[in-house]
Amino acid sequence: MTRGWLYRLPLPALLAASALAADGAAAPAADPGKAVAFYLVAAVTVGSALGCAIATNIVRMAMCLLGTLGGVALLYFLMSATFLGVIQLIVYAGGTLIVIVFGVMLTSRAYGVKLRPRPVEVLAALVVCGALLVGLVAVLLRTDWPAAPAGGAAEGTVAALGGSLLSVYLVPFELASVLLLAVMIGAAYLAQPALPTAGDGAGPEE
């Protein structure tokens, strides 16, 4: 009962707020507002990721994933990568996540079957992941990263991105489109009924 406020944590409100805070984005100098925003968003992101790990219900996992995806989009906003942030929202939150929820609903008729991991597995995974995290953080903190260049591309990112996609990255871009086509056909082939009936397309399509 008392857990209600947790779920009322205004994730999308934060999203809005930092969309607001983002695109001015001038100097990487000390900006307490920005730091506060970062810590809030980071907390939401990692919190939802942890929620993903803890949740047993697959729909709740998907919703926690929404929190993580939204948080990452906000982080992109904070890093002035507004275009990426928006694309993340469109493709991930608006597309992939819905496909995942669809998948959950299409495959959810497993009453009474509890898909819980064995404690040993959980323990092993915890140890491995914890060790990895500690190791990574230790390495990260010790590495001397090159200093940030002043400014950073805030304005005109979209045009620059488009330009590089159609010049330097033309081949990967085209490959990606071929891949998408292949995926489209493949997904349609995989998910189609064995004998396509001449019905009037009643089922939900993906």
Partner: peptide, 9 residues
């Protein structure tokens, strides 16, 4: 249905 169609709910 229809020879192993989509096993939906």
């Amino acid at each position: 249905r229809a020879g192993g169609g989509l096993r939906t709910e």
